[in-house]
Amino acid sequence: MANNEPDVKNDVPGLAQGLPPEARREQITGHVNKARSCRVEELAEIFAVSAMTIHRDLDVLAKEGRLQRIRGGARAITARLAERDVRLRRHLNSEIKGQLAATAAQLIERNSVIALDDSTTVGALGDYLEEREPSTVITHSLALMGAVSAMAHIDMVGLGGQYYAETDSFLGSIVVEQAERLMADAVFVSTTAIKDQALLHPDAEAARTKRALLKMGRRKILVVDSSKYESAGIYHVMDLSEIDDVVIDDQLDPKLMSQLRTLGPRIHIVNTSAKAHS
């Protein structure tokens, strides 16, 4: 699609009028996330473009995993929906994930060996690896393997096994066996759920793989947003009392934060203006 679209309406006032396509799509995403769902006609009026342009925008945004297409419009990606597709999870709470990653990156020591899991939260650490200069990165995330392979001064150990498209990573017994033969100065993981003072995950193979990664680390670091507290999970990954550091946003319920502190990990709080998580 051309960047200069001819169908911008000139009779609708407002800052949304006349935006280039990428800027408009960014604002459409934010509007739908805030409203939870919107119809095409509503978006066309707000952004002063034709319904056909909005249809094209929503098709692009849905393909990129930033929104879900529904009949006559679009709706926000929820955590439950996103858990089934890594493409969707990469856009869920992306601003908070970036803030968490920026703080977690400060825990990477120069010339250290680090291990990173396949979560999209930990995946955001990829943007900080070159400046933090670990000597080696161990990961089972295919996306991180691609990113680190382009970093000339960082060695990479890729954990291979059965590839799962829904997580864009390698999981299962082969990965676990490789992890059991490795050591890392620090391991960074996230998780789908925290309940009863434990990390939980809805998938057995993913839980087993995360557990193996954590066990290889001298320092175990959990990077998680507060929406994961009290969420549903079936398979036990590790007790919170075994975690050395927790990087979390400041929206966690004070009672839960107090409970977390009693378990003894070093807590690194990320200040954010977000008031809710999907």
Rank of each mutant, 00 (worst) to 15 (best):
E41D: 13
I269G: 12
Y128I: 02
S278K: 10
R56C: 07
P13Q: 01
L263R: 08
I194H: 01
N271K: 15
D127P: 03
P202C: 01
S119W: 15
L100A: 01
V86K: 15
S227C: 09
H236F: 09
E131G: 09
V32K: 10
L88H: 08
A48S: 03
L252I: 13
R211K: 14
A184S: 13
L92P: 01
S50G: 01
A79L: 14
Q106S: 11
I243D: 03
E205F: 07
K34G: 10
V60A: 05
A102I: 03
M238F: 08
E177V: 00
S258M: 13
A150Q: 08
V60Y: 04
I96C: 02
D118W: 14
L159H: 06
D185I: 02
L129P: 01
E83T: 09
R219F: 09
S94H: 14
T136M: 12
S190V: 10
L182Q: 03
L144S: 04
G146F: 06
A74V: 04
A62N: 12
G126L: 15
I138E: 12
I194V: 13
V86N: 14
Q27V: 05
G65A: 02
T103G: 02
R39P: 00
D85C: 09
F170K: 03
R84F: 07
K97H: 01
V137R: 11
I269K: 13
D118G: 10
H201L: 02
I46C: 04
V187Y: 04
E26V: 08
T103N: 02
I114G: 01
M145W: 06
Y229H: 07
T191G: 05
A165G: 07
E131M: 15
L159F: 10
L200K: 04
V148M: 08
V223C: 07
Q197V: 07
T121E: 15
L199G: 00
N4C: 05
H201V: 01
T262S: 14
V12T: 06
L58N: 06
A206E: 14
I267V: 15
G158M: 10
D127N: 15
Q17E: 05
L263I: 08
Q17K: 10
H153K: 12
I54C: 01
R71M: 08
A82T: 08
V32C: 12
D203C: 03
E26S: 13
I243C: 07
A82V: 11
K34C: 07
K228Y: 06
L240D: 03
L142V: 05
V175R: 00
L159N: 08
R80N: 13
H268G: 07
A76I: 11
R87V: 08
A207D: 01
A184Q: 06
P13W: 00
A48N: 00
A186E: 09
F188Q: 04
S135R: 09
M257K: 11
Q17W: 02
I70K: 15
G146K: 15
L58D: 06
L125W: 09
T272V: 05
S231R: 13
V270S: 03
R208E: 11
A105E: 00
K34H: 12
L214H: 06
K215R: 12
G146E: 11
A276P: 04
E130T: 15
L159Y: 06
H236S: 07
I96S: 01
